[in-house]
């Protein structure tokens, strides 16, 4: 809808035909002032400039608001990502602990000894250990 200049001078409406009166010598009326065509156009130009300015401001304002919303959405997404990473970190730490525990249990001497016995192995007795004297190096 084109902007309406509320304060523009309205176009003169067609005058109501006057009631018939005894003819009188018609008074010399000044000729109706007609605005040259160029003047109407120059009145419309400031209006259009104002309209354009308003549109620009609205667009800028909309961009600003969109930017604020985008920033907030980005921050929220980052928080969600942080929370997910925190959960992941906790899971990994728990997994790490569980693995350490598994390794310790697997390497425990009683477990190894039981497994060795099942395979028919026996522990070396100290009496069966001999030492080799490599000498001091001389012949």
């Amino acid at each position: 809808m084109a902007a309406i200049d509320w304060f523009a001078q309205a176009e003169v409406a067609e005058p109501v035909p006057a009631r018939r009166r005894p003819a009188r010598k018609p008074a010399q009326r000044p000729a109706a002032r007609r605005r040259p065509a160029g003047n109407v156009r120059s009145r419309r130009e400031p209006t259009q400039r104002r309209v354009r300015a308003h549109i620009v401001w609205m667009i800028l304002f909309a961009l600003l608001l969109s930017g604020v919303v985008a920033v907030n959405v980005a921050v929220l997404r980052a928080h969600v990502a942080v929370a997910q990473l925190d959960q992941q970190r906790e899971k990994l730490e728990a997994r790490n602990q569980a693995l350490q525990s598994e390794v310790s249990a697997a390497s425990s001497a009683p477990r190894i000894e039981r497994a060795a016995r099942r395979l028919g192995l026996v522990q070396v007795s100290s009496g069966n250990t001999t030492y080799l004297d490599l000498g001091s190096g001389g012949r």
Binding site: E90, S101, E102, V103, S104, A105, S108, A109, P110, R111
Partner: peptide
């Protein structure tokens, strides 16, 4: 969530 104390080497 909680934490459970475990002694992986059992009797040791």
């Amino acid at each position: 969530s909680n934490e459970k104390r475990v002694y992986p080497q059992g009797t040791v």
